[in-house]
Amino acid sequence: MKKIEDQVTTVISIASLIGRVEAFRKGAYRLVQMNCSKIGEQFEINYSFEKDYRFENIRIIITPDTEVPSITGMYWGAFVYENEMHDLYGVQVKGINIDFQGNFIRTSIPYPFRDPSYKGEGPCQGK
């Protein structure tokens, strides 16, 4: 099947994160999204950028208690994603411009995506 678009993902170290984001900002890329995934015992954080429909993604892989620098200095609007990562995964982000202190998405349990839990499926009627 024809690929819709090429998506390049580069894994980088947390130390070079700010530099890379700065380069994207200077290159007039827009921030598409940021997200965190729990893979095994580690968190993968994706930063996706786009310019003229060219999609680029950088990724850092961290342990759950690593502190991540905020990119809101370069991309003001990133606070929604950073607060979300904090509220759902408990990723500590340093220096967010609008820090909701864990009140952006109010959840019933703290950091629910860190150790996912479910309401058990009760027995169906008649079973």
Partner: peptide, 8 residues
């Protein structure tokens, strides 16, 4: 959504 953690 009944199995979602946030839905009671």
């Amino acid at each position: 959504f009944r199995e979602c953690y946030n839905i009671s």
